[in-house]
Design a protein around this nucleic acid. Structure first.
Lengths: 214, 214
DNA sequence: CCAGTACCGTACCGTACGGTACGCAGCGGC
DNA sequence: GCCGCTGCGTACCGTACGGTACGGTACTGG
């Protein structure tokens, strides 16, 4: 109940350096060991006592939640410089989103964390799922939609419902990749393939929603 | 080791009526209780003994595998009458696939089974994931691609790689729906919305790949 | 009528794992 | 130096659950 814990701009507690090390250990274990993560293993890996884990994170769910948040806090990078768009810039911005998104969902960490969250959503108390959703699908949506809006304002895109347009973009980019990875399909994408996929998705999106500037 | 078990055309054993009842009990429990499925619960629900469960299915994994296969065997309906396509028929066939697919992935059973399979894929022995994949994504792919081929043969579609074209179709239909449901997002689609979504996806797909018959 | 088989119900076992208790070392404050 | 605090290491507890054993019942074939 100390009043000295740091908090970020949204009021979330930000873990101390030692706690971050513990959370990184959790991520490492998750990636290496598949998901049968035990508190003992975490304590051993992080060289801390189980009692400390329980003191800091409450229980196993708390540890998982903190881990997911911690990972999420790393992904939020990316600049969204605003301003009036031209066609080339719009394309480039969409391409950037697409590449970033594919990089994320194709990463081992994302796959494992999504698996955890999905399993969690299956057994009541589905806040983990909500967190992952908020920091994945919804976060990228929140960042892409303003770009689409700017594109429409500049006369480069035509659509009625921004949500629908974004979800189409999402579908064109992700296709079956995420579900296949979650289900254990090998399917490793290298950077070149990701760029190709992203470019194809952007081309298709612009073919559907783009229009020449009037 | 009785030699009298029935087998289907692919050599899979097909469960007896009593066994089917057990598997249905598993499905019901899965849907009702989230996924913390215990052998005790199954035995109680199906009014059979645990010993029988182990005799029939080997172990818990075997029971899960049989359940997934059993559910998969139900979905394989759907006529694929071949022949030369005209534009309206092609559209209708694609629409039918899209509606069917959305119906499946939006169903409680599919969500729960996918969750099980994904959790399973996270902890070694990922055959459950492979089975779900084979009967979901891959099965529908196998059925859609011939239709696309027929459309191309009829000069109604233009594409180079059938796999890519199909995956685009898949992305346009599914978008973020499956991952959101798996993560516990409420998002309940009624039949009308599914039809709208499916129609939009087909329109978009034809906008990308369709061409007037020369 | 008996033997064999199939299966239900239930008691039981072993263990893995979440969670707690306790001893001990390092360290800052008085 | 002594005291309290934080946190490591480890031993420990309780329980849920996978898997097994066993007794009892119904049915079938001989």
């Amino acid at each position: 109940m100390s009043a000295t814990v740091a908090r970020d701009e949204t009021g979330q507690e930000v873990p101390s350096a030692r706690q971050q090390a513990v959370l990184d250990a959790v991520l490492a274990l998750l990636v290496e060991e598949g998901d049968q993560l035990t508190m003992d293993a975490v304590a051993r890996r992080a060289s801390c006592s189980k009692e400390t884990l329980y003191k800091w994170f409450g229980d196993r769910d708390g540890l998982l939640t903190a881990t997911v948040r911690w990972q999420a806090s790393r992904v939020h990078a990316g600049r969204d410089a605003a301003g009036v768009l031209d066609a080339a810039t719009l394309r480039e911005r969409l391409l950037d989103f697409a590449v970033t998104w594919l990089d994320v969902i194709a990463g081992r960490t994302s796959v494992v964390l999504n698996r955890i969250a999905i399993a969690h959503a299956g057994s009541r108390k589905g806040n983990l799922g909500a967190i992952v959703l908020a920091n994945g699908r919804l976060a990228i949506g929140g960042r892409v939609k303003p770009v689409l809006e700017a594109g429409r304002a500049a006369g480069l895109l035509a659509y009625e419902d921004g949500e629908t347009a974004f979800r189409t973009f999402f579908g064109l980019v992700g296709r079956d990749i995420q579900i296949r990875l979650l289900l254990g399909d090998a399917l490793d994408l290298d950077a070149a393939e990701i760029r190709r996929d992203a470019a194809r998705a952007v081309d298709q999106f612009l073919a559907l929603y783009g229009q020449a500037r009037p």
